[in-house]
Write a protein that binds this DNA or RNA. Structure first.
Lengths: 185, 185
DNA sequence: TTGCCAACAGACCGACCGGTCTGTACAGTA
DNA sequence: TACTGTACAGACCGGTCGGTCTGTTGGCAA
């Protein structure tokens, strides 16, 4: 499910395709997911968020957060290229397809993004003096999503590298503090 | 068409819905767009890119590019809120739904993004000394897309404001030059 | 006036969509 | 051993999808 969502989005995958992938007949599905495709999607979103949070928890603590983010982006680049520029962020596709009526899905996505931002913000705060940790976290998530998107349609990791090359130096200057206001803890 | 694409994506809209919106019967469509839905989508994408480029051309020249971008983002925020958090970037949704097999669509999208990046990069270069104009352009497009995405699912412009508040000061320091390496022309 | 062809209109098509419904297999209980 | 309720299986449903096909119209050439 997660995989298919990542590739084609919620409307793009058929229930039958999902079930075929999972080698599961259709009948039993509605016992476990009475909400049908929507509930399935919510579960997949939550799973993906949990995975991503786990990855961030592995990369972020201790190290220089910018270095950790560079590693994160590098991984995403590899994943994208390895999938032949099919796999993107599993949250983003569903996010853009969803309408305001899809309350459950939007809630799951909003919670997911908030959780990711919170984790990044926490890492910035822990790494030292930082004024606008929440803003930086939102910027990074945005840059990540946007970079992935551009790279996907371009069929090349070049846009991601461009974004990284522009963003990380800026982040370093911000995090390491302007020379006249240095502080570390 | 553009509107519908923006709201629900390529797979999310039915051809019948598009035609009903346009008050056009189905028959004549295939005279003008023998390629069917795909060709229609490509045309819509190109139209949107042209519109966006026109907007940028209106905002960017002359002024401080960062101020122009702030205006641009503010407009996007207004549009998003005014649509009840339905309308996003018309390119992004289709971009994420598309697979590598959709050659024509991906090409149109890649060209579109490249054109937008080029316009931004040009503005940076024109505005003064700048090392990595292409990188900054890619970063801004990425941040824009990602911010829009987060704001949409959150049902609030707050994420966009966060991103803007983090990005624009960074851009200013970059564009106005580090204090020990100032240069203007 | 007549013949012709591009432009258009919408009825129609098979395929497939998400979802439901009946039937079955099989634990746990007495 | 007989009973029962849950978990599963897949045939089946109406609706809608993207796309095609047969008219019909209306301007233009002769």
């Amino acid at each position: 499910m997660g995989n298919a969502l990542q590739h084609k989005g919620l409307h793009g995958v058929g229930l039958s395709e999902i079930l075929a992938d999972a080698d599961t007949p259709k009948g039993g599905l509605y016992h476990h997911f009475p909400g049908g495709k929507t509930e399935l999607a919510v579960a997949a979103i939550e799973q993906q968020v949990a995975d991503l949070c786990a990855l961030l928890d592995k990369l972020l603590p201790g190290a220089d957060p910018v270095a950790a983010l560079e590693l994160w982006i590098a991984r995403a680049q590899q994943g994208l290229a390895a999938s032949g520029f099919q796999r993107g962020c599993p949250l983003a596709t569903v996010a853009l397809e969803s309408s305001a009526q899809d309350v459950a899905i939007r809630q799951a996505l909003a919670d997911g993004f908030a959780a990711i931002r919170a984790r990044l913000a926490l890492a910035f705060e822990a790494s030292g003096r930082i004024a606008n940790a929440a803003g930086l976290a939102a910027l990074i998530v945005a840059a990540y999503e946007g970079a992935l998107l551009q790279a996907r349609v371009a069929g090349s990791v070049a846009p991601m590298e461009l974004v990284g090359a522009a963003l990380f130096p800026l982040l370093r200057t911000q995090l390491q503090g302007p020379p006249d206001d240095q502080a570390t803890d």
